[in-house]
Design a protein around this nucleic acid. Structure first.
Length: 471
RNA sequence: GGUCCCAUCGUCUAGCGGUCUAGGACGGCAGGUUCUCAUCCUGUAAACACCGGUUCGAGUCCGGUUGGGAUCACCA
C-alpha cells in the first residue's frame, strides 16, 4: 500500500505553485499505486496563521484537480487531519520521549537563547543549544511540575552519523555534532513541525514522504525521532525547488506564486498549469509535452524525478495554455471567458462573446488576453493607433461603398472592399490597415471582415463616419 | 561562515560507457501561408562549467575546482 501526503501550512493566502508541483507528484504516485493521497493541514504556528488561508488552500487543490482522498474536508480513517486538533497526541508522544530519555525539558527563556546564540556567533561557532537544562534535568523537572513554562527538546546523540536514504539522491550523511537539540513541543503546547510531521506520518501510515528539497537539512532530525520511537522510516524523496529566473527559490518577492493568481488573474486553465508543472523535473517517457492528469498518473514514476532545480518559465506556461485553449470546445471557451470576466466584475454579452470565439481562439494564450483583443466589439474605440484625419476621403468612399452592401456577411464585405481597392487604385495593405484602425482602434485585431460582420452594418458605418472626427 | 544538495542549448529537458558530428519542446532568428496579428508549415543559430583520473572508449563512472542553490528559530 502506498500512501502519500502533502502538508500545507496556512501561513500564506493560497497554495504556492511549488506546492502544487509536489502535490502533483504525491497525488500521482499514490494513485498510480492504487493508494491514497492525504492532505493534512499543518497549522501549528499560531502567530503566522492567515485567516481563511486553509479554506482557500483546500479549495484551490480541489479546483486544480488534486483533492485529497483524506483531508480535513472529507475526513478519513486517521482523522483529524488538522494538526491543531491533535495536540493531545503530540503531547503524549513528547512525554514518551522524555520518559525514555530521548528528549528533555527546557526552561530557558527566549532572551537567554538569543544571548547564547549571539555569543556563539561572535566566537564563530555554530548556534546550538548549550544543554544547560539537560544537565540540570532534576531541577528543571521540578520547575516544570510547578507549572513553569517549558519546551521539550530532542536529545541529539553525540558523535553519530545519521544516514538519510533519499530515493532520488541516494545516501546522504550528516554528523550529529552539527545538529541542534530541536524543540519538539513549544511552550504554548503546540508541537513544532518536526515532531508533528513524524508523529502524523507514522500514525497516518504514510509510506512515501515526497516533499521540497528545503526539508533535506532537517531530515536527520526526523530520522532520529523515528529511531527514538522505534518506528519504521518512510521512503524519503526530496524534490527540487522551483526557481525564479535568477535561480533563487521561487518567491513572491520576485514572481507571482499563488496558484489562484494564475487561474483567476491570468486565466490559465487548471489542466494547463498542472501539465506545465508536471514537466518540471520530469518528462514524459515518449517525450510528449501535452498530456492529461490521468495519463500523467499512469506514466509517472517517482524514480524518474530529476534532481536539478528548474526555473519556472511563465512564457512556456502561456504557450501550454494556448494549446489547451486552441483544443477546447468553443462553447467551453465561451463559458470560461464569461466566468473569468464575471469574477472581475465585468459582465460580457454572451451572444457577442460566442460570435467572437472562432476569431480569437487561435489568438489568445490565456483568458486574460480576450478583452485586450476584443474590447472593440463591446465599446467604440476611444483612440486610434494611426491618424485617420488624413484618410477622410478614403473613409468617405468606404462608407458609400459599404452602404450598398445588402447581405452583411464577411465574404460580401470583403468582396466589396476589394472592389473599392481596385477602383481607387490604392495599396491593399494600407487600405485595410486604415479600415482596421477605424473599426477597432488598433493595428492588430481579429480578422477584419468577420469582425465587421459581427459589429453589424449600422455600427460599422457609424464608426467609419465618426472616427476621423473623434481624432 | 558551517552542513547539505545540484551542474547538457537563454529556459524545460532526452541521454542511464560505444548507436552523440548530443535529440525534442518553449523562446529567438529567417522564410512560406495571410489585408494586421495569431494559428499552421519549413529552415536556422544555440549546450555537455573546468581540471584530473578509471576505461580500448566518458555528456554518461570517480575525485577535485569553480559556480549556483537550500538550510542553520519555541516558522513551516
Amino acid at each position: 500500500m502506498v500512501r502519500t501526503r502533502i502538508a500545507p501550512s496556512p501561513t500564506g493566502q493560497d497554495v504556492h505553485v511549488g506546492s502544487v508541483a509536489t502535490a502533483l507528484m504525491n497525488f500521482a504516485w499514490a494513485h498510480r499505486n492504487k493508494g491514497q493521497f492525504v492532505v493534512r493541514i499543518e497549522d501549528t504556528d499560531r502567530s503566522r496563521l492567515v485567516p481563511g488561508g486553509e479554506k482557500k488552500m483546500l479549495d484551490t487543490l480541489d479546483r486544480i484537480g488534486l483533492p485529497g482522498d483524506e483531508s480535513p474536508k472529507v475526513g478519513g480513517p486517521y482523522a483529524p487531519y488538522r494538526q491543531s486538533e491533535r495536540l493531545a497526541v503530540y503531547k503524549k508522544y513528547a512525554e514518551e520521549l522524555v520518559k525514555n530519555n530521548k528528549a528533555y525539558y527546557c526552561v530557558c527563556t527566549p532572551e537567554r537563547l538569543t544571548k547564547m546564540r549571539e555569543e556563539q556567533q561572535a566566537k564563530k561557532q555554530l548556534p546550538k543549544y548549550d544543554r544547560l537544562c539537560l544537565n540540570n534535568q532534576d531541577e528543571v523537572k521540578k520547575k516544570v511540575l510547578a507549572g513553569e513554562k517549558h519546551v521539550v527538546r530532542l536529545k541529539i546523540p553525540d558523535n553519530e552519523e545519521i544516514v538519510v536514504n533519499d530515493l532520488i539522491r541516494g545516501q546522504i550523511k550528516f554528523g550529529t555534532k552539527d545538529i541542534d537539540d530541536q524543540v519538539l513541543l513549544k511552550s504554548d503546547g503546540y508541537p513544532t513541525y518536526h515532531l508533528a510531521v513524524v508523529v502524523d506520518d507514522h500514525l497516518m501510515k504514510i509510506t512515501h514522504v515526497i516533499r521540497g528539497e528545503e526539508w533535506l537539512p532537517s531530515t536527520p532530525k526526523h530520522v532520529i525521532i523515528y529511531q527514538s520511537f522505534g518506528w519504521e522510516l518512510p521512503v524519503f524523496v526530496h524534490v527540487s525547488l522551483l526557481r525564479n529566473p535568477d535561480k533563487s527559490k521561487l518567491s513572491k518577492r520576485k514572481n507571482p506564486v499563488w496558484t489562484s493568481w494564475y487561474l483567476d488573474e491570468q486565466g490559465i486553465y487548471p489542466e494547463a498549469l498542472l501539465n506545465y508543472l508536471a514537466l518540471m523535473g520530469w518528462s514524459h517517457p515518449e517525450g510528449k509535452e501535452k498530456f492529461s492528469l490521468d495519463e500523467y498518473v499512469e506514466k509517472f514514476d517517482i524514480n524518474d524525478i530529476q534532481t536539478t532545480a528548474p526555473v519556472f518559465d511563465p512564457v512556456k506556461l502561456d504557450w501550454m495554455n494556448g494549446l489547451y485553449i486552441r483544443e477546447s470546445q468553443n462553447s467551453n471557451l465561451k463559458t470560461q471567458i464569461l466566468e473569468f470576466y464575471k469574477k472581475r466584475k465585468i459582465n460580457l454579452d454572451e451572444n457577442l462573446v460566442e460570435k467572437t470565439i472562432p476569431l480569437i481562439k487561435e489568438r489568445i494564450k490565456k483568458l486574460s488576453g480576450y478583452l485586450p483583443l476584443c474590447e472593440f466589439f463591446f465599446n467604440k474605440p476611444e483612440k486610434y493607433e494611426i491618424d485617420l484625419k488624413s484618410k477622410k476621403d478614403l473613409l468617405k468612399n468606404l462608407g458609400e461603398e459599404l452602404e450598398k452592401v445588402k447581405d452583411w456577411k464577411a465574404s460580401v464585405i470583403g468582396e466589396s472592399m476589394q472592389g473599392l481597392v481596385k477602383k481607387l487604385g490604392v495599396k491593399a495593405g494600407e487600405f485595410f490597415m486604415v479600415v482596421r484602425v477605424a473599426m477597432t482602434g488598433k493595428k492588430i485585431s481579429p480578422p477584419l471582415n468577420e469582425s465587421m460582420e459581427i459589429l453589424g452594418k449600422e455600427e460599422c458605418l457609424k464608426r467609419i463616419d465618426q472616427s476621423p472626427r473623434i481624432q
